[in-house]
Design a protein around this nucleic acid. Structure first.
Length: 366
DNA sequence: GTAGTCACATGTATGTTAGG
DNA sequence: CCTAACATACATGTGACTAC
């Protein structure tokens, strides 16, 4: 736990963070989708060692946390303000974990120090030498953020055709993720998804595209990876994939303008960190789905329907948890999964963020 | 063990349509 | 005729299998 009353007096060297880092055993499990955690296999145990290269950042993260305490702003600490070492919420939840802080009368949420998911994933990869992840080339004298901005700035104002030429990006056809793939091409990732490069994962960054189309009706909500109902059933929100998506990720929203029919121009990008209200809303949705699955409340209407017919169900609808919506998302033959416990068949789903919300973020909505 | 191949799931998205 | 709520497109990722 973060001790608001004491920690601000303690330098990093003698902090609980640094002490525990000297004496910590990591146990890695293999995550399997739609499988309860208790059945995960242990694949690696190893003592934790903070890498020399990362120490400076962890120290800065620690100092940013204790500085907030010193400024009487402990209630404003969140997990987004740090890079590797976060300040995750901890406590009984449901409003019962507000504690005193020394330099303000405002009560702060109880929190603990934590290494972020992306950081630990990168750590794991570094010790396991898995198949090689693509790397971004980050020159010695530049930071990740500089490289990110320079790579994008270079193409601002250019059309997708121009960018295709300059990046030697081939692939034509009807892929629905062409504009996103083009962003990856800007980072010279050899065709890999830029969001899955070592650097993006470790720093907790994710690029998404927002397209402003001539036919307004064709503007789309923003999609996310598929929902793992077994994870929701078993895990608390704070340990979930969704928490990682929204509490520990900085989004870079790349905006494309359709200036002529089917012609797009990369107009700008903005950074977005989901705020607390957003996080609370997704937590509500998470817990609602958890409740539904646990109590066998999910109903699916698929009588006499094939896998490629329309199925309907009683999961929350658009508007119930604005700006989120649950949508089907499979393709090919891979469109059906089983819910935990009930073994109820249901179409694969993902969460989507409402386009009005997203367009508001990037200044397209008035 | 591990390189190559195949099949298909996943992640990035957008397309389609029925009912108010 | 709009748009919520269903659907699918395609490139990449990846597990299973084979051959060495």
């Amino acid at each position: 736990m973060i001790n608001y009353g004491e920690d601000y007096k303690i330098p990093f060297e003698s902090s609980i963070v640094n002490k525990k880092a000297q004496n910590m055993l990591l146990v890695f499990y293999l995550h399997e989708e739609n499988t309860p955690v208790s059945e995960f296999k242990i694949i690696k145990t190893i003592p934790f060692q903070l890498k020399k290269d990362d120490e400076q950042q962890v120290r800065q993260d620690y100092e940013s946390i204790v500085n907030k305490i010193k400024c009487g702003e402990a209630h404003e600490i969140s997990e987004k303000q740090q890079v590797f070492l976060g300040a995750c919420t901890k406590g009984r939840g449901k409003g019962k974990d507000w504690v005193k802080q020394p330099f303000s009368d405002e009560k702060a949420k109880s929190r603990a120090y934590s290494y972020k998911v992306g950081y630990m994933s990168a750590y794991f990869r570094s010790i396991m030498a898995l198949q090689k992840l693509e790397h971004l080339a980050i020159p010695e004298e530049k930071s990740f953020l500089q490289v990110l901005q320079e790579s994008l700035n270079k193409y601002i104002g250019k059309t997708s055709e121009e960018i295709k030429k300059e990046t030697n990006y081939t692939s034509v056809g009807k892929s629905k993720s062409q504009l996103f793939n083009l962003i990856s091409a800007m980072f010279e990732t050899n065709g890999s998804n830029v969001n899955r490069t070592q650097e993006f994962i470790k720093e907790g960054y994710c690029i998404k595209t927002v397209t402003n189309r001539l036919d307004k009706a064709k503007n789309q909500d923003m999609s996310f990876p598929n929902i793992d109902f077994t994870e929701i059933y078993n895990d608390e929100f704070e340990d979930s994939t969704w928490y990682g998506y929204f509490a520990e990720t900085t989004y870079v929203l790349a905006v494309w303008e359709e200036f002529e029919k089917d012609q797009y121009r990369f107009s700008k990008y903005i950074f977005w960190n989901p705020d607390n209200a957003f996080l609370q809303q997704i937590e509500k949705l998470y817990n609602h789905i958890k409740w539904m699955v646990r109590n066998n409340e999910v109903e699916v209407y698929n009588e006499n329907k094939s896998n490629h017919d329309k199925w309907t169900d009683n999961l929350p609808k658009k508007g119930d948890f604005f700006p989120f919506q649950i949508r089907p998302k499979g393709s090919g033959e891979s469109v059906i999964i089983k819910l935990p416990i009930s073994n109820q068949l249901i179409k694969k789903k993902c969460i989507m963020i409402d386009k009005k919300f997203i367009r508001g973020l990037v200044g397209l909505e008035h």
